[in-house]
Amino acid sequence: MEKRKFNIKSNKVTAKNTYCLELTALEPGYKFSGEFVDIELEGFYLRRPISVCDAWEGGITLLYKVVGDGTRALSRMPSGSVLDVLTGLGNGFDAAACRKSALLVGGGLGAAPLYRFCKELCSKGREVTVILGFNSADEIVLEKEFRALTDKVSVSTADGSAGVKGFVTDAVRLLAPQYDYYYTCGPLVMMKALHTMLEGSGEYSLEERMGCGAGFCYGCSCQTLTGTKRICKDGPVFKKEELLW
């Protein structure tokens, strides 16, 4: 964990109620794909934990949805504003768990933490299949970006306004992708359904209301088969074998 000041480079709408936030800092303190940051917002007591979507020399990109007053306030912050950020939080995905081919399944903004990880897997020569699910066409994010990394990208929408009509589970059935390890992030109901239907092993990125975001308040602890784990510190990524649903 590091506490850093970041500058807002840009903060733009990228889909319905969804913003793309580019932050710059001399040393972003970013380490692993799948990490998150915790952002202080003036006028709000607790920080807002948000997954890192992408990282580059001197900055990070986040995607967030306006779901309440805090994220609404964040969406109104102009370029050039300074944010106080706890960075380098959480454990991230384990690329080494995949030997040859990976399946990434993202639901809604669950696509965000998978993006940087997809880049990482592709750069290591892994074959990657990406399945993304959204409620409707106007909520789709990162489709173009994922397609630039791999040919095997499928998008589904619950209302059928784009791609496969239905949920990611329908797309998985339709595509029958080949993989030796899978990685997923999205709504809990989606991940529970995948847990039942996907063969083999994989990793799940969880979210929860957090207090400190850094492992010392025990506000987001969950019970696992390997003991009590803090989602913010021991996670947010957990292996299939650990999870109790």
Binding site: F44, Y45, L46, R209, M210, G211, G219, T228
Partner: peptide, 23 residues
């Protein structure tokens, strides 16, 4: 002790509520 079920944290104006439950 594991403590209480999730969620355990709620934000308030100038404060917060926790129900960690002595984990």
């Amino acid at each position: 002790r594991y403590g209480n079920p999730l969620p355990r944290i709620a934000e308030c104006t100038a404060g917060m509520i926790n129900s960690v439950g002595l984990q």
